[in-house]
Structure formats: C-alpha cells, structure tokens
Simulated scan of single mutants.
Amino acid sequence: MLTQAGNARIAGIGLDLLRLDRAQRVFDRHPQRFVQRILGPDELFVFQRRYQRDPRRGVRYLATRFAAKEAFSKAIGLGMRMPMAWSRMQTLNAPGGRPYVKLSEPLQSWYAQRFGQAHVSVTDEHDIVAAYVVVEAL
C-alpha cells in the first residue's frame, strides 16, 4: 500500500523497540558471535571504538543497530529472509550525525529495483532503544 507524504510516496514503514537488558544478555553469552552476525564492516569499526571507551556505550550502539535492521526489514516487507541479512543493512552516521542506510549486495540491487530512499531514525533511553524506518516508493 502506498501513501502520500508531501512529494514522496511511502512504500513501507518499520518500527522496532528493544530492551537494552535483552541485548546485554545476548552479548554477554555470545559477544563475538552476536557482534559479527549483526554488524556490517563499517558498523563494526564504530562499535569497537565505542566499546573500548565504554562497554555500555558499545552495547547501546549494537542494540540501536539491531533495532534499525529489524525496522528496515519490516519496512521492505521481507523480515529476515533473503536477500535481507543482518550485515547487509548498515545504519551509519553522516558527519553532522544524521543516520543513513547503507546497503550491500545482493540486498542493494534487490532494493534498488523496488524502492527509493530509505530514512532511518534511532534513539535510546536508559532501558530501551527504538528504530523507525520509512521507505519511499520509486
């Protein structure tokens, strides 16, 4: 279903909420495996820097990226099935801090044939993180 918002037509919306204690428990049990499975290469670099400075900040970053991937998969209607994979969708920050979506293959080609720009927003509080994704139609 497409809806109109200004000049852009919205093809999909996704929202995800995640309790930080849940992300922390998974990280505590399988730190390397969880990080490697969820984060793409650019996100991994940011995570490692943040985690070295403050482990809580690193896990918070990991949780927001997990939520963004979940929200994105909902917005495009795939869930976590091919060509969607955790590490193929990255949420990075532009120099001013604004988050943006970066896709890798084969998800990138699949997405480009179906959708326009993707908009992502992430936030965190002391016990919860949230991510919201809006995907434009072509």
Rank of each mutant, 00 (worst) to 15 (best):
I38A: 01
Y61A: 03
Q108R: 10
S109K: 15
V59P: 03
V134G: 07
G58Y: 00
L15C: 04
G58T: 06
Q108W: 00
T91F: 00
M1N: 08
Q24M: 12
R19Q: 15
I38L: 05
W86N: 00
L92G: 04
Y100C: 10
R60Y: 04
A85F: 04
E43L: 06
R19W: 14
R29Y: 06
Y132G: 05
P31A: 07
L62E: 09
G12R: 12
F66M: 07
F34A: 04
L78Y: 00
A112M: 14
D54G: 09
V26P: 01
L18W: 07
R9E: 03
D21K: 15
F72L: 13
A112H: 10
F27R: 01
A68E: 01
Q52N: 12
W110D: 12
L103D: 07
V46W: 05
T91A: 10
H126S: 15
R60I: 05
P55D: 10
H30E: 13
R81T: 10
M80F: 11
L2G: 04
E105R: 09
V135G: 06
G97F: 09
V26S: 05
I38W: 01
S109G: 09
Y132R: 03
G77Y: 03
L62P: 05
Q113N: 14
A75L: 10
G97C: 13
G79C: 08
Y132M: 13
D127R: 13
I13G: 01
A5I: 11
Q36S: 13
H30N: 15
L39Q: 00
A71T: 02
P55I: 09
A11Q: 10
D54Q: 12
V134L: 11
G58N: 06
R37G: 01
I128F: 14
L44F: 08
L2K: 12
G40D: 02
A131F: 03
Q48P: 05
T91I: 06
V101D: 06
I128V: 15
R37D: 04
V35S: 06
V120Q: 06
I38H: 02
V133I: 09
A94H: 14
V26I: 14
R22W: 04
S87C: 01
E43C: 08
P95R: 02
R33T: 12
Q52T: 15
I76M: 06
A67T: 02
F34C: 11
R50Y: 06
Q24F: 08
N7P: 10
G97N: 13
K69H: 03
R53C: 09
E43A: 02
A71H: 00
E105P: 02
L62R: 00
L15H: 13
L78S: 08
R56M: 13
A71N: 03
D21G: 05
P31V: 11
A23P: 05
R49W: 12
F45Q: 14
T64A: 04
T91Q: 03
R60G: 08
L138K: 13
I76F: 04
G77N: 11
G40S: 01
M89E: 03
R22L: 14
R22K: 12
E136G: 10
P41E: 11
A63K: 00
G14K: 06
F66I: 06
D127T: 11
Q32P: 14
R33P: 08
V26W: 00
L107T: 01
E136P: 07
H30Q: 15
